[in-house]
């Protein structure tokens, strides 16, 4: 591949192109902006801003096929990437089986950490459809919940695996 270059335009922004939830997107992003801030500015507010320092996992997105925290990535790093946010996984009217499982298992209280949890679960189950409890704990390592604790969420991932196997 040949080298690439991004230079600030006259508005003091980088112009980037990327695929977001399957759609081609062009955006102008500020040099100091994180991917998290850029996504939220574009209206994708399902990606939550928690700690902003990589500690809580609420801002996780699937970036080129892998879960990554979007607060630890400059927005310009999204140039030419493929990104899936929680909006690309399911909606209120058409929830993904993982989202249904989280609701049914009672794993959602305030809900702030849930988009990150769903992203981590999706990444886990795509790779490993029948994970052990230890593997579930390992993949939810970086998602902190301040309401329910983690028991229900581990149950939710098990339930999601069952739903997806059907």
């Amino acid at each position: 591949m040949k080298s690439e270059n991004l230079t600030l335009n006259k508005n003091g922004k980088f112009e980037i192109n990327f695929t977001l939830n399957g759609k081609e997107i062009s955006a102008q992003v500020k040099p100091k902006e994180t991917l998290l801030e850029a996504l939220r500015a574009l209206g994708y507010k399902g990606t939550k801003k928690g700690c902003d320092t990589g500690d809580c996992g609420s801002c996780a997105v699937i970036f080129n096929g892998k879960p990554k925290v979007s607060c630890l990535m400059p927005a310009f790093a999204a140039h030419k990437a493929e990104i899936i946010t929680i909006e690309g996984i399911g909606s209120v009217s058409k929830p993904h089986p993982i989202q249904e499982a989280f609701v049914e298992a009672g794993a959602v209280q305030c809900g702030y950490c849930i988009p990150g949890m769903i992203i981590s679960t999706k990444a886990l189950l795509d790779k490993n459809p029948n994970p052990s409890e230890e593997e579930i704990k390992h993949s939810l390592d970086g998602n902190l919940c301040r309401c329910t604790g983690y028991v229900k969420q581990i149950e939710a991932v098990k339930l999601a695996a069952k739903k997806l196997a059907k």
């Binding site: 990589g54 996992g57 996780a60 970036f63 892998k66 879960p67 990554k68 925290v69 630890l72 990535m73 990150g116 992203i119 981590s120 990444a123 390992h138 993949s139 390592d141 970086g142 998602n143």
Partner: peptide, 12 residues
């Protein structure tokens, strides 16, 4: 690696 940040940071 098991103790190293979180899975979503380890991917970055």
């Amino acid at each position: 690696v098991k103790y190293y940040a979180s899975p979503s940071i380890r991917n970055t």
